[in-house]
Computed example of a mutant assay.
Amino acid sequence: MGYINNNTGYPKDLLASRAIIKRNNYAVIPPDGLVKNIIPGFENCDITILSTPKLGASFVDYMVTMHANGKNEQGFGADGIEVFVYVIEGDVTASADKASHQLKTGGYLYCPAGVKLYLKNNSQTSRLFLYKRRYQPLAGYTPYVVAGNVNDLAKINYEDMDDVIIQDLLPKELAFDMNFHILTFKPGASHGYIETHVQEHGAYLLSGQAMYNLDNDWVTVKKDDYIFMGAYALQACYAVGHEPLSYIYSKDCHRDVEL
């Protein structure tokens, strides 16, 4: 049933999955069923490729489990490609543009197009959320390397709701054509309305459970699930259960639509 939670061999029940794949619309991918992918440059790492253009996304998301001595000395990224890494749990050294950053749980690093990301695991096991996307240049603006930790970020009431908090991981500047955010809902909290917009999201659930509206399908999701939300897919959620619902997600922004 998937390497990531060590459920292998024959199941004790019927073959079943909570996964939902609706290409160019939305997808829900739980840990059960994830398979390993071999990506050049990554050593002693288990990697699952999540969203890709084959699913309908303009970006690629990965789940990376770095084992002892796990590393990438080749560099992740390329000309024209921006990359981002978030540490779900663990301790890694992330290097970019000749500078090294120790990223523990909640740490992150953004590399602009043409700046490669190098990784080295410092603990027994580290889990990472990894992202890449082709950068859309804007004349007169140049993005730069950004490193930080969510524990140091301001917690802002989301759309004036004091039981929903948003944190912005990257600056809201025109130099950046995307951003990462973390939304945290207290149990029982929800979005204020069902959203409909051109932006895409790739979201990883850090904690809690939710009833999520995805293109008017109400779907149950929980910690460690991954959600892809395509352009114009309706979206909103209620946090359910006894723990806060929290998820990290990407969003394309700050650019006009090209024809």
Rank of each mutant, 00 (worst) to 15 (best):
N122Y: 04
K71I: 08
A57F: 04
N122L: 09
S51Y: 00
A239V: 01
V150E: 11
Q199R: 05
N122R: 11
N216Y: 13
A57H: 02
G188A: 07
S246E: 05
S17H: 15
D215C: 05
L14I: 15
T220M: 12
Y118V: 06
V87W: 01
P137E: 09
M66W: 08
A57L: 01
T65E: 14
F76G: 12
I156S: 03
F42R: 04
N37L: 06
I49N: 04
L214P: 00
D79K: 14
D79S: 12
T105S: 14
G114N: 04
K12P: 07
V240K: 13
K116V: 07
M161D: 13
Q74G: 15
L103Y: 10
K186D: 02
G241C: 01
V198A: 06
L205A: 08
D163E: 07
F185Q: 00
E200N: 04
E73P: 06
L34W: 00
V87Y: 02
Y26D: 03
P53V: 05
L169K: 03
A147Y: 09
V198N: 09
I21W: 10
K120V: 08
N7C: 09
P137S: 12
L14K: 14
D46R: 00
Y3M: 02
G9L: 07
N6H: 15
L138M: 11
Q74L: 13
G41H: 01
K222T: 07
V150R: 10
D152Y: 10
L169A: 02
I248C: 04
R134I: 12
Q209E: 14
G241W: 00
A175Q: 01
E195N: 02
P187S: 01
F59C: 03
I156K: 11
A147S: 13
R255G: 01
T184H: 02
P143G: 12
P11A: 15
G106S: 10
A78K: 10
D162V: 04
I39V: 10
E243R: 14
V221S: 09
A99Y: 10
V164N: 01
T142V: 12
G114Y: 08
S95W: 06
P187C: 03
Y135L: 10
L259R: 15
G75Y: 03
P244I: 06
E173K: 06
K71R: 13
D217E: 14
A57I: 06
D13M: 13
V145A: 04
V60P: 09
L55H: 00
F42S: 02
G80F: 00
V221F: 09
D215T: 07
N72T: 05
R18I: 10
L205G: 05
D61N: 10
D256V: 14
E43I: 14
T220E: 13
G33Q: 00
G41C: 01
N151Y: 03
C253Q: 15
E173C: 03
D162C: 04
N6T: 13
V221G: 06
K223C: 03
E258N: 15
L234F: 13
L34N: 00
A57M: 03
S100Q: 11
L14W: 14
A175D: 00
K22Q: 15
G2S: 15
P244D: 08
H242I: 13
K104C: 04
Y158R: 02
M211S: 12
S123Q: 13
M63C: 00
K36G: 00
I39D: 01
G202V: 05
L174K: 12
S126I: 03
R255L: 14
E43M: 08
V146M: 00
Q199A: 09
Y108S: 07
